[in-house]
Design a protein around this nucleic acid. Structure first.
Lengths: 187, 187
DNA sequence: CCAACCTGGATGATGTGTCAACTATTCCCG
DNA sequence: CGGGAATAGTTGACACATCATCCAGGTTGG
């Protein structure tokens, strides 16, 4: 009755006991949190989390228009993912594609009015639920720890031999991670 | 150039600055880590992460056979998810379905030899990569913090008004979370 | 016994993510 | 200028997740 979750036996045998407890707790939490945020988003607005993420990027630019691959790079998505997703969003009127005059192969993704109102409607509830589910549970020290832990792992992921996905999108540019407090491992 | 990631403006306006930093770092890390683990798993073995999770559950039982909904409950998956996934795995020979004698509607999911050897082949590399990507980056204190943070959020997710998904599978039984060191918030 | 209901599970539609291949442009170099 | 090579983006096939719906086998109350 202790195998509430995967990784009970096989995996965690090669991790220290505290490590395996932490890993199982993390994986489980992360899965539930993602599911919960997605569901909540699609319940109290008409968009999904991926829609939301795209719309945020567009909202962040002054003119609400971004080149497709630029979007991919900012979001750490692969180009086919962004392409497919933009196609779906276009079908629903959340964005629109426009040809790029200066580069014949390129195109812009442009925020529509519908898209703008959709994200404005969705954002407050999302922020609220993140606060309620995550930050209301944590002390200041834990918030700091969450940040540091995330940065360390992320840095490891985008450094050295394992930059795979990311490498597909920004090729030469290793990845724009602000060191900020690296204390970077030997890898 | 600071909008490396979603949630830059719209969302995080309603979180404290340190909270928004932590949230963005977490979301980004979590996305990359999931992607990386999945890719790695399918590169150096013939199974996916979801396959792996199912196989772990089966391996954990003495006889390698579990009722479908029991599996769903253990993994916090919804029944249709497990049903679809088992169907795909069956097609590849990793598991097999067997009718349940004592209950005419029920069926067991049974680990096959192929399934057993698949997970035995996949597990070491997976454990190794988790260690390398995660635990090699963290101090003991951080491992502890990761555990505590995850537990707090998970507890909040599975307590009170927001037990939605989970509620779909274990109905009456609120959820089997061992308190273990709750220090549970007022929620 | 049988009708209403509940439960275990399967199914189909749709949205999403990944990979591999493809097209069309632009760039670069001779 | 011309012919690769790189770049921007699309497409199709497939794996995966969710939802709503369905069905068959149990359970219960009359």
């Amino acid at each position: 009755m202790c195998q509430l979750f995967p990784y009970a036996e096989l995996v965690t045998r090669w991790l220290e006991p505290e490590q395996q407890r932490a890993w199982r707790a993390y994986v489980r939490m992360q899965g539930e949190l993602n599911a919960h945020l997605s569901r909540q988003m699609s319940v109290d607005s008409d968009i999904s989390m991926p829609d939301f993420a795209v719309l945020v990027q567009l909202t962040d630019t002054s003119d609400g228009r971004v080149r497709v691959l630029e979007l991919a790079r900012q979001m750490h998505w692969e180009k086919s993912r962004i392409s497919h997703h933009v196609a779906r969003m276009e079908k629903r009127g959340l964005v629109r594609r426009e040809n790029c005059g200066s580069d014949g192969r390129g195109s812009f993704v442009v925020l529509t009015e519908l898209g703008r109102s959709a994200i404005e409607a969705a954002a407050p509830a999302h922020a609220e639920i993140v606060r309620a589910l995550v930050f209301d549970q944590l002390s200041e020290a834990e918030v700091q720890a969450l940040h540091d832990i995330s940065e360390k792992i992320f840095t490891r992921l985008t450094t050295g031999e394992c930059a795979s996905v990311i490498a597909r999108c920004d090729a030469d540019d290793p990845v724009e991670v602000v060191p900020e407090e690296s204390g970077c491992p030997e890898a």
